[in-house]
Amino acid sequence: MADDEIILSELDDEELVAQMFDDLYDGLKEEIEEGVNILLERGWTPYDILTKALVGGMTIVGADFRDGILFVPEVLLAANAMKGGMTILKPLLAETGAPRVGKMVIGTVKGDIHDIGKNLVSMMMEGAGFEVVDLGINNAVEKYLDALESEKPDILGMSALLTTTMPYMKVVIDTMKEKGIRDDYIVLVGGAPLNEEFGRAIGADAYCRDAAVAVETAKSLVARKHNQPAAH
């Protein structure tokens, strides 16, 4: 054993959370899982571990990605580490009745198989207390509509990586308008070739440039929606 090796169980809570931030940043999945288990043994609630240790650490990763300090491979490794921790916490969160902020149905649009960004958004939304129903890739409009009807979410999220597939988001929104259900949901869109102008042009409520923005936008729009008097 190297002299400078850090023994996680010997750190106090504050040091351990700081170390977990570092371990998330470095994409160390096993260390994150160990840290989560130590905090559970110390009596932390699953919700506190999720928000203070994991989401806190991932927020730093997200900020450094946005600022060009970290790149996609490092973000993926960090996300994979966070996923390890969330796998332990998820069943416990359900048992302990952690607060639910809202519900989101999310999926990559028809003709598009790219899901890295979408998966990051799903994970960060879950971390922020949203229930997420992930429809996966290559979703036709019918699949979105079926999920809206069966899941009754607050938010519909759509993702696309390709210039050629992003117009399909408008097909989905236009179909929602035709059926008179557009205003029942908050519609968020994201993906590398998108921009705010495109989001506005297709009738989405917001374009989210990254997972952190998606979480903040979702929180703010859900709060606004819940504050509105019911429509008559």
Binding site: F71, V72, P73, E74, L76, L77, H114, D115, I116, I137
Partner: peptide, 17 residues
């Protein structure tokens, strides 16, 4: 650029579909 030289385990995350 995808980091596959350093982290070949990421391959299926990028190319799985």
């Amino acid at each position: 650029p995808l980091g596959l030289d350093r982290h070949p385990e990421l391959r299926n995350l990028y190319f799985g579909h």
